[in-house]
Design a protein around this nucleic acid. Structure first.
Lengths: 248, 248
DNA sequence: CGAGTGCTTGAGGGAAGTCAAGATTGGTGG
DNA sequence: CCACCAATCTTGACTTCCCTCAAGCACTCG
């Protein structure tokens, strides 16, 4: 069965990178598995690269691949028939994308930035889950966390003001930044990072319009809560202050 | 450690009902397990009843129980510090409530109607998951479905108009109704059902105000898409027509 | 029968959306 | 290296949909 999207947009296979040098080896699904299991799992996976904008799957498409993000950011979107769009999830390094145990995708999967992935055929992946209950257990835990995050986002989409949404988004990004060695950073220190999304994409994530996002970013800048180094680079001198504007 | 909520509000233990007469035996988690495993699981569970309004857990509380809903509807809510509320999930018969593998609840759990539950201590439940990979696998599948539903809801909260939200909600309720024998109903036939939520609760679920919900329900009634038998009882003569107003 | 609760309807206001210029940025090729 | 073009972002003016506030209605229960 042919996929409906452009084959050229598919991520290209690259030379296999052993898990030992994987950028997220400390925090990915694989991290807590014993070396032996890890090796078996590595055999079934292959490293892929996706350029910004590459579409990995579309709504209604056959769900063929499951992957762990090793660098970059993947966005998952849903679209109404008249074109209104909503980003329903972002996958950062160590997160999984793809839908095990379903024949069809319910979301469009697209690279928000240049991305590297550790990818599995869905059938192989499901086989691994069956053979390694520890792996399945870990995936369950990850999905439970994802569900908690989704609920948090439902609160944002249902009840927060535009300013609170933008502040929450920036706060979330700050919290998800990784140190150069792939480990997580403390939750308090000042931080500078690249926005992985355009204003339009941020709007689609926050349930706003791009103009509203732009206005609210400007207001946060005027308040001194954030510093815009250039359009896409943001500094947060005091994360408490930003968090205070996030509602909650 | 004492729970922070009123002990009197806790569901009361009732006489054990064997799985063989469980109202959701055909569709619950347990349904596809072999009889032997089912028996072991039943040993660890107990039937409980919760009256409408009973609070089973609050945000920040220790996560102590996991339960399968056997009748009624449970709502899960999140609240901002200034009182704004959002319902982030409903659990219908055969759905699970509770958060395995986390010490604290991130949501408030409350009976939206009179409810019966098949309940487990969290520690026992986690033990069962460990001992029965098939059970764990099934829970994973359920949580993946729940995640899909959450994403669908994010689209609603982020992008749909008030009228589309109300139509989507009624459409979803119609789809989730069970026949008297506990099996699922066809997706097309005309249907009459009770709203499990008040106007205020519907508003909290849809990210609207209760006045807006009331107005939109009135408009759908004027359009002839729904018939209000009495304040809480709704008939949908043509479900296609209702679905057409849901956006998507 | 009156009080309480939940629901409906109306009038007015405000937060975010829409439409429309400009300003910046970044990529490309001369 | 710089100039140009397209894409992205910002800002402004106006509109709209939903929220807020308020009043009245329909049931239920003491």
């Amino acid at each position: 069965m042919r996929p409906q999207y452009d084959r050229n947009a598919l991520p290209k296979a690259t030379d296999a990178i052993p898990c030992d040098t994987c950028p997220v080896r400390e925090i990915s699904v694989c991290s807590i598995l014993p070396r032996e299991q890890r090796k078996q799992i590595a055999l079934k996976s292959h490293n892929r690269h996706a350029a910004k904008g590459d579409v990995l799957a579309v709504e209604g498409d056959r769900a063929a691949q499951i992957a762990s993000v090793t660098s970059g950011v993947i966005k998952m979107t849903k679209t109404l028939s008249d074109g209104r769009q909503q980003i329903v999830g972002l996958a950062f390094p160590s997160d999984m994308v793809g839908r095990p145990f379903a024949t069809d995708n319910t979301v469009r999967v697209e690279a928000a930035t240049d991305t590297t992935l550790c990818s599995f055929d869905r059938a192989h992946f499901e086989q691994l889950l069956k053979e390694h209950p520890a792996f399945e257990g870990l995936l369950l835990r990850m999905k439970l966390d994802e569900l908690d995050a989704a609920k948090e986002w439902m609160l944002l989409l249902g009840r927060k003001s535009a300013k609170e949404r933008v502040a929450s988004f920036l706060s979330m990004l700050a919290d998800r930044q990784l140190a150069p060695d792939g480990t997580r950073l403390p939750r308090t220190s000042p931080i500078t990072f690249e926005l992985p999304l355009s204003r339009a994409e941020i709007a689609d994530y926050l349930g706003l319009t791009l103009e509203t996002v732009s206005r609210q970013v400007s207001k946060l800048r005027e308040l001194g809560v954030i510093v815009i180094e250039d359009g896409r680079t943001v500094s947060v001198p005091d994360r408490q202050k930003l968090a205070a504007l996030s509602g909650n």
